[in-house]
Design a protein around this nucleic acid. Structure first.
Lengths: 298, 298
DNA sequence: TTAATTACATAAAAATTGTTCATGTGAACA
DNA sequence: TGTTCACATGAACAATTTTTATGTAATTAA
């Protein structure tokens, strides 16, 4: 590398260490005449002679001695400087603010924890920040630049953001222990029966089954844990992601209703700002998420 | 002179400081295309982009920011190095970066202007730079080599720096026109009375009168002008250097409080790095300051 | 004393590097 | 929809650096 090109000083130092021009030409890989010219130029620039040479032998002058010491010092710090700037080539720095919806940690296909591990395992100095919010809020904060990356089932996609499809999340309708339908036989449950009961909805309108659309719901919830709690009361039916129920050993507390007829998917996307050029950390983490998602689905 | 020729870094730093290529071409005295090529080469050498540019505006990338900081550092030390080697020739050259606290220009005993005149009157090619900062910041920048000489009331002296005492600065407590004490007769003012009023303090803890220590102050100020302004409001008492008040024809706007009991000194020092061998310019200017200080006190 | 050798200097030619000029491009603005 | 701005790019030219070839002075060997 040659950020600070410094032929004169390097030549001088090498010549001193080789004890003359003749040996230095091999060390430097140039001809003896080139060295002669370089030393002449150095002395012209300095305004004084740095060494005595010729058939009589090689020796530093008094000032040349001082110059040699100082040249060694500066060359060392220049090399350090070069190394520091080059190291930036591999290092990722800065803040990385990621926004997700709640309950993604059990979404096996997405494997967010895996992506984070992958990202953090590489050498970097990134400061991570993860926030949980609704898709609508995530969209807003991505546009303003408040977030760098959003992971959610974005249903209404906007032009300012770029979306990459990640995986599907399967939802079914559940009821809790105290609910009239909890012990009802499967064959007695159909859409018509279900429509007689209160349904608890998620507050952002993307997890609503089209079949249940007509039912007016009195309970609205903005969080997966809250939804589970509402269903556990036995007063409401409600949709939950399958992975959410299965991962928490709660199968005995919930009952799937008409699993053949009532199941629907929401698609998860990774979103970033499309306009501005991304920072390395953003690009790399996006790749990590997409990679770990593919791996999980394979 | 250019012992360490370094067009790329210098171009980069200049471009950053000019906020784009277009202005930098005048600062550097080359065409815009040359700049474009140089920045391209720099980025090729580094392996990453250092800045975003174009019609959309100029901005450093994340890494570019770091590179810019480091480049500035190395360029400073390279200039110092050049100057050191050149001084062996006999003349004084290079950068001389001096740091002072604010409001020293009216400190008669120090006579900084006199010292500068004396220095500049001698034949030399030194490029002067004077910056104003708090003693704490000056200490920091002296240690890093960012500054060559610091002049301030250094209270906490560190081992890495060498201090030479220069002179004392006398402080007294003042109030402004609108203040209740402004027209109070002298014999009614004592420490007890004073302690009932708000006192505005300097943010670096060296100009606080020991007698006033107990009083809790709600106003803190980092600059002498700001202190004067606060006192002029009539809401605060505050310490000011005597020379500051007297030199500005402001005696009628301020009133000294208990001048016999409340006066205290801060001692000004000249500080340089003790470890490293000084450059001629540094040594000579230090001598000039000390000399003009002695002359003023005589 | 003279010839050979060593260690470097120098001039001219060749190669390399850097700069300018003229023109192109794409984003933002009117 | 065209214009302008800020930079990119290619070709021609200029400057610098290196090599090649040769010269010179100081030693050393004969």
């Amino acid at each position: 590398m040659k950020l600070l090109r410094n032929t004169l000083l390097e030549t001088f130092v090498t010549v001193v260490e080789c004890g003359g021009f003749t040996d230095a030409q091999y060390a430097l890989g140039i001809t003896q005449s080139a060295i002669s010219v370089r030393i002449r130029d150095l002395e012209a620039a300095l305004g004084y002679r740095v060494c005595e040479r010729g058939r009589g032998g090689f020796s530093l002058t008094e000032r040349g001695e001082i110059a040699y010491q100082k040249a060694g010092d500066i060359l060392r710090s220049v090399r350090d400087f070069d190394a520091e700037l080059l190291e930036l080539r591999g290092t990722t720095t800065g803040d990385l603010r990621i926004g997700i919806v709640d309950a993604v940690n059990t979404l096996a296909n997405l494997n967010l924890a895996g992506a984070l591990k992958r990202f953090l395992d590489r050498p970097n100095e990134v400061k991570l920040e993860v926030i949980v919010a609704s898709p609508t809020e995530l969209t807003q904060r991505l546009i303003t630049g408040d977030l760098h990356i959003g992971i959610a089932p974005f249903k209404n996609q906007v032009a300012d953001l770029a979306y990459t499809e990640l995986c599907d999340e399967e939802h079914r309708l559940y009821c809790g222990r105290g609910h009239p339908l909890f012990r009802a036989p499967d064959n007695q449950i159909d859409l018509d029966v279900i429509s007689h009961y209160q349904i608890c909805q998620r507050s952002y309108g993307m997890l609503v089954s089209p079949e249940l659309h007509s039912t007016e719901s009195k309970a609205v919830v903005a969080n997966m844990e809250a939804m589970a709690t509402m269903i556990e009361t036995g007063h409401y039916l409600g949709p939950l992601p399958v992975h959410f129920v299965e991962s928490r050993a709660r199968r005995d507390k919930f009952r799937e209703l008409a699993p053949e007829k009532l199941q629907w998917n929401s698609t998860f996307f990774l979103a970033t700002r499309s306009s501005r050029i991304h920072r390395r950390a953003v690009e790399i983490f996006a790749e990590d998420v997409i990679h770990s998602c593919k791996t999980s689905n394979a």
